[in-house]
C-alpha cells in the first residue's frame, strides 16, 4: 500500500506549482525515520515551482521527524506547527523554508465550512 507520505509528495510533484511559494527559493529535505531506517525526500522550490525527489540531497533546510508523524501531516490529522512546538519536528538550516512548506499540508479531514455551521443553526 502506498503511504500517505508518498501520496502527498507524489501529488505535490504532479502539481509542480504552488502560488504561495512564489518568491521562495531553496531546497528542503525531509529525513523521516521509521523502523530503524531513514527515508529521504528532497523538495526543490523555485519561484512557485517545485520538484520532489525521493532521495537524499544537500538542502538549505533539513526537517527531521518520523514517518508516522509525517503520515499524519499528509492526511491532515496531525498539525505540523504544534508538533514542531513539541519538538517532534527538528529543523536545521533555514527555518523560513519549512514555515512556507508547512502550509501545503491539508487541514483536518472533518473540518467544516463556516457556511454549514450557520445553516445547521438556522433551521428551527
Amino acid at each position: 500500500m502506498v503511504s500517505p507520505t508518498s501520496r502527498f509528495f507524489d501529488t505535490l510533484n504532479r502539481r509542480g506549482h504552488e502560488d504561495i511559494l512564489a518568491g521562495i527559493e531553496g531546497t528542503v529535505r525531509f529525513d523521516l525515520a521509521h523502523d530503524g531506517d531513514v527515508e529521504h525526500w528532497t523538495v526543490v522550490i523555485r519561484h512557485g515551482g517545485l520538484r520532489v525527489t525521493p532521495e537524499w540531497r544537500e538542502a538549505d533546510c533539513v526537517v527531521q521527524t518520523t514517518q508516522g508523524l509525517f503520515d499524519g501531516f499528509a492526511c491532515g490529522t496531525t498539525n505540523p506547527w504544534s508538533a514542531w512546538l513539541r519538538y517532534q519536528i527538528r529543523i536545521r538550516g533555514k527555518f523560513i523554508l519549512f514555515s512556507f512548506f508547512a502550509r501545503l499540508f491539508p487541514g483536518p479531514p472533518d473540518a467544516r465550512h463556516p457556511r454549514t455551521l450557520s445553516a445547521e443553526g438556522a433551521a428551527p
Binding site: N79, I96, S99, R103, L104, G107, P108, D110, A111, R112
Partner: peptide, 14 residues
C-alpha cells in the same frame, strides 16, 4: 506567510 489555506475548526482557519 501565515495566511490561512485550509479549513480547520479548532484553529478557525479558512
Amino acid at each position: 506567510n501565515f495566511q490561512g489555506r485550509r479549513l480547520d475548526d479548532f484553529r478557525e482557519e479558512e
